[in-house]
């Protein structure tokens, strides 16, 4: 497989993380200095349950959680796989580690996606 494909997606995932994590930091920490009232309608801390539930109702946030999860998992696990690939362990062990990381990544993505969708469902019910 051409490694440039994985490398390109690794870089693009890093950019996605930069943007979405930046958005997360802004919402969590700059709510008092920026006009973000629509994202924290209950007032108080951005992490208060009422504010979290209000944001979870928005389809954009559900989608951004899923995209951020996918990007973070791919970026992190690909990086970890690269580090393992540069160690002096045997080729068989490296292949096993790659397979484990892929299974782990897919499993975590499924669980996380379910959690994001379920959270929206709960928030919509009120």
């Amino acid at each position: 497989m051409r490694h440039s494909r994985l490398w390109t997606w690794h870089i693009l995932a890093g950019l996605v993380i930069l943007v979405l994590l930046g958005l997360h930091m802004v919402i969590m920490h700059l709510d008092e200095v920026l006009p973000l009232a629509g994202l924290n309608p209950a007032g108080g801390e951005a992490i208060d349950w009422a504010n979290v539930a209000a944001r979870a109702k928005l389809g954009f946030f559900m989608a951004s959680y899923i995209v951020l999860l996918g990007a973070a998992l791919f970026h992190g696990l690909y990086g970890l796989n690269t580090i393992i690939g540069e160690t002096n362990v045997g080729a068989g062990l490296k292949r096993f580690a790659t397979a484990c990381l892929m299974v782990m990544g897919v499993a975590l993505f499924v669980v996380g996606t379910y959690a994001a969708i379920a959270a929206r469902g709960l928030a919509m019910k009120g």
Partner: peptide, 13 residues
Amino acid sequence: RAKAVDRKSGVFS
């Protein structure tokens, strides 16, 4: 040449 270097343990290492 891309075939020779664009691989695992290739140029991206």
